[in-house]
């Protein structure tokens, strides 16, 4: 909070999006540095950071999609279900039908595309509330996952497992372990995919007509319509992008865990929404940033790691801390925005 007050002079000049992004990034760095200083241990090693990335690559991708939908003023709570459905379908295809990697990627994209088309049409052209449509979508995906296969199982396909274990070393950030052997820091393929998507979406939102339309539609539908923006198509595209990203995120998730189960990615949609909010995206639409979402995911998982390494390992602490963090971020956003509104009025 101190930070934002010092900036009062430039405070009003910043757009809502940038202001919230700054808050998020600053808080994330404070949190991480705090963890390094006070907890030490694993946090001093760069690999800790990369592990967070490895475990959350799929969350980054789905949260980016969620941000796009939220910027355009909608919501999509089906992403967790889609992730579970994708991983189950790919697992069954690879193991029981002797499928290839390319085929499984196509399945993931296909499921995402189908979901995006159906949900996008229902939301944009039939004017049904996105919450209800994606709620049904979530139910459908979770149900279908169990219909495809009830029991959870690990994928045995050797080609897939080779891909799963592929590690990309990060130069210069390894550590020397107790035996004096140099252990390089690594990331999984999913992380590269996630970062690539973050960069692409950042550019799309900032420099393309679609990106600007998304902000315009989310900010004020009526005035966007009067500016000649095709509101329906923009809404449709936002849901399409989100679902395709959920499909890709599902494959990355599958690549990370290497199994199919109906209980996969339980509550992921809520984590994605929480990350987007922490990253400064507002559910009312028109405000948000992909970079912020990336930091949102990182903050969320960093706090989880801090809680776990602080010895508060009872299951309930994670839930409570995430909720407390969400609460704090929401209050900061709410206070900052109302302060700003007041300043503008005067």
């Amino acid at each position: 909070m101190k930070n934002t007050k010092e900036k009062t002079s430039i405070f009003n000049k910043m757009s809502d999006t940038n202001l919230l992004l700054t808050i998020t990034v600053v808080i994330f760095f404070f949190m991480y540095i705090g963890a390094v200083l006070f907890q030490g241990g694993g946090f001093t090693k760069p690999q800790m950071f990369f592990n967070i990335l490895n475990a959350n690559a799929s969350l980054i991708i789905t949260a980016c999609g969620m941000s796009i939908v939220m910027i355009s003023g909608g919501i999509d709570i089906s992403v967790g279900g889609v992730v579970a459905l994708v991983s189950m379908c790919c697992a069954v295809y690879l193991d029981y039908h002797d499928g290839s990697i390319i085929g499984s990627v196509l399945i993931a994209l296909g499921i995402g595309l189908a979901y995006g088309l159906v949900q996008g049409v229902l939301v944009a052209y039939f004017d049904i509330q996105p919450f209800i449509v994606s709620l049904a979508g979530m139910f459908f995906a979770r149900g279908m996952t169990t219909i495809v296969n009830t029991a959870p199982f690990n994928v045995e396909d050797p080609e897939f497992n080779a891909l799963k274990l592929t590690r990309i070393n990060v130069p210069g950030l390894g550590t020397v372990n107790k035996k004096g052997i140099y252990v390089p820091a690594y990331v999984e393929i999913g992380v590269l995919v996630a970062l690539l998507i973050v960069v692409i979406l950042f550019l799309v939102l900032r420099y393309t007509r679609l990106g600007r339309s998304l902000y315009a539609v989310g900010g004020n539908k009526q005035s966007a319509l009067m500016l000649g923006i095709n509101v329906k198509r923009t809404k449709f595209l936002s849901h399409l992008i989100c679902s395709i990203l959920a499909g890709i995120g599902g494959y990355v998730y599958f690549l990370h865990v290497g199994s199919g189960a109906a209980s996969h990615a339980m509550g992921m949609e809520m984590n994605a929404i929480a990350s987007s909010i922490i990253g400064g995206t507002m559910l009312t639409g028109g405000v948000g940033n992909i970079i912020g979402t990336l930091f949102g995911v990182l903050s969320l998982s960093t706090i989880q790691n801090i809680v776990a390494s602080a010895g508060l390992d009872q299951a309930w602490w994670t839930g409570i801390t995430i909720a407390a963090m969400l609460c704090i971020f929401l209050l900061i956003q709410s206070i900052v925005m109302s302060q700003k509104k007041k300043a503008l009025k005067i």
């Binding site: 919501i75 909010i277 309930w316 839930g319 929401l330």
Partner: peptide
């Protein structure tokens, strides 16, 4: 605080079962 209801209740949604336990 004028937070959207779905998001405001997301807090208890995440924490509720943990608090109950």
């Amino acid at each position: 605080f004028k937070i959207q209801p779905m998001i405001a209740t997301l807090i208890l949604f995440t924490a509720g079962r943990s608090i109950a336990a």
